[in-house]
Design a binder for these strands. Sequence first.
DNA 1: TTGTAGGCGTTATCAA
DNA 2: TTGATAACGCCTACAA
Lengths: 342, 342
Amino acid sequence: MRTPTGAGQRTATLSDVARLAGVSIATASKALNGRRQVKAETRAKVIDAAERLSFSPNALARGLLAGRTGTVGLLTSDLEGRFSIPILMGAEDAFGSGRTSVFLCDARGDAIREQHHVRALLSRRVDGLIVVGARPDPRASLGPDLPVPVVYAYAPSESADDLSLVSDNVGGGRMAVEHLIACGRRRIAHIGGDPTYGAARDRTVGVLGALADAGLELAGGKPFYGTWSEAWGRGATRMLLEQTPDVDAIFAGSDQIARGVLDALHELGRDVPRDVAVVGFDNWEAMAANARPPLTSIDIRLEHLGRIAAQRLAAAIDGEPTSGTEVLPCRLITRGSTAPQT
Amino acid sequence: MRTPTGAGQRTATLSDVARLAGVSIATASKALNGRRQVKAETRAKVIDAAERLSFSPNALARGLLAGRTGTVGLLTSDLEGRFSIPILMGAEDAFGSGRTSVFLCDARGDAIREQHHVRALLSRRVDGLIVVGARPDPRASLGPDLPVPVVYAYAPSESADDLSLVSDNVGGGRMAVEHLIACGRRRIAHIGGDPTYGAARDRTVGVLGALADAGLELAGGKPFYGTWSEAWGRGATRMLLEQTPDVDAIFAGSDQIARGVLDALHELGRDVPRDVAVVGFDNWEAMAANARPPLTSIDIRLEHLGRIAAQRLAAAIDGEPTSGTEVLPCRLITRGSTAPQT
DNA sequence: TTGTAGGCGTTATCAA
DNA sequence: TTGATAACGCCTACAA
């Protein structure tokens, strides 16, 4: 039976349960919340009644009283969700089985919309906020005056008073090159992404560090910067091979760039990984795993980032705030595009 | 100044505002809510006080009273968010500026977890639910007894009593083939995805319909089914061209498959679009726009789907429920992989 | 035009 | 062991 509102049965309240069980509201509450000041028999009666009415406590009323809602806001600006979704999933995981739910709001890179969402979330009395930036560069802080703790993930806050969690792009770049060196490569080039991104420059820093440690120089003489696209990966590769034909490895600034690199190498008749090894960045499964050959890539572990963000936020909500920027390590995922040189 | 909890200032309540403005709580409420039974001067005083305290009404208290929370649950099972994120964005759009916020929960294809999330959402007293399935095949209904309206998007409910919104896969397949015919192609083949997906089979139905209308037959004699992967696109294309070398168009069941098709055609020395035109499905921007040449694709308009879902849900919440399955049309996005034959 | 009072559904305190 | 009662923050009759 449906009511005219399109909804099923009206939700039962605690007083319905109490009435059905023949006890007071207070007793029903205690019974359901596992308080021990209630006779086992009574408790059973109440629980039975609650089940029969499929009672579910009103979190609003509860939150009103407790001053906590078990609710967290995730504010993103990442249109496609490529970054925020894994972060969200990690966060959901860490918050554990349903004690905390997540409001996801997309500001679409618009400051006005962001303010708007912040207000909406605060009026819903979220216990805290996770802010995921549109790109991994520092972004404006939401300010120090919010009534709830905030964790910035992926993109750090510009303010050192905030807590920010970011991926270790320097370490990631280093890791890629160290892997290539371990595979026996010596003529290693780097085709980076958009140089206006700090992440692109950081990765280069790692690249140069690892090369220096091994007493090597960057093949091609300098990093190549362009855009985060396959087209750039193709173009840069052609340019690179023309001027430096003896390259035996290319570290690409993203998996999309790497796809372009693979394409161009294929066209130029270079075998991957025999002639040239390739490493990507992001470990974007759909891109990396379906490449030919499958692409070795640096995984920035966004789910892990989300998990840590949730942990830090939970700690802050419980009165143990932290601040500063935490840099989380990347991870190498080895696939067919690199292989030890025999 | 930070309190020890890591949070900024405590949030002001209506009574704080009232006290600062020197009026009663009731008057403050009326003033802020635009009731006209209040002197302009008083109203100004109250509004000023509210701003000074950066007062924001407690949505919990409000919802408790009103029986509505301005909150909706979006329950997905789509690990990567490729489908649910656009749907979410469309829904957010339609719900408009912040009157309604969306809880996003990912059940990860696990029925237990889904039940769990449903309970959590209901206890938070969401006004309604949008359920996005993991794949576009019918899925189990959440049941008729929920206290709030539900809209199934992308994957329909198995129950006709529910309201479901799905993409028109038959129409999409037809649209792809009609476009190819309009481009002057006559030897059109279809490389589909996983045949256990109703969507894969539906697209074929559309293909065959369009061909029949034009008095054509499917090149290759039958649709090729496999998996939703680039590798399958490559393999199937080789197989197809071996047995039917005169193919002049391929409609792929997904953009990933289409990428594989393009790859294989390139290797086999067939020019796209001159020798063979290619159409994909999904209009997955990252895949389609970066393909070489850029891929014409059928867009299933997920944001639009989300927008309609939100509208239907809002209507149901306002007491105008609907049921049955609504089939939403696709859209053709033309790019370089098809072109009128000259 | 303003203020008083009751109630939304819970939980916690205290008395019975 | 149980039950009455007072919050939580807001809105809305109704009374002043």
